[in-house]
């Protein structure tokens, strides 16, 4: 297996950063609760690409191990988040996140 060069690494890192930024935009601008969580999943994907790229670069399995944990956290987050979405939807009959803004100063 040949070594990965710095330039190749930086390309993957740039792609991860772009995906992360796109997820961030979605997280902040979408009003649908499901879409907000979907946006966070995009950010997870960006981070996963970064971690795997580093694992490839350093030729060890730590990055991949981190991705395993990342996936389990993402799965846990998704199950809880979607359960919450269902709960909140039952209360207000809407997915609009702005319906839930009582915690204000």
């Amino acid at each position: 297996m040949e070594l990965m060069t710095n330039a190749a690494l930086y390309q993957y890192l740039a792609l991860g950063a772009v995906l992360f930024a796109i997820g961030l935009v979605g997280f902040m601008s979408r009003r649908n609760m499901i879409m907000i969580f979907l946006s966070t999943e995009i950010m997870f994907q960006g981070v996963a690409i970064n971690l795997i790229a580093f694992a490839r670069y350093h030729l060890n399995a730590d990055g991949q191990s981190f991705v395993i944990f990342l996936l389990s956290v993402a799965a846990a987050e998704a199950s809880l988040a979607l359960a919450l979405v269902v709960l909140l939807y039952r209360r207000r009959q809407t997915l609009n996140i702005d319906a839930w803004s009582e915690m204000q100063g």
Binding site: A21, R31, D98
Partner: peptide
């Protein structure tokens, strides 16, 4: 739904995200 068709504060969101 209306909240899907119109995003909220797109300018700020985009500015902040792309600043980062």
């Amino acid at each position: 739904a209306e909240y899907d068709k119109v995003s909220a504060d797109p300018l700020i969101a985009v500015l902040v995200s792309f600043l980062l």
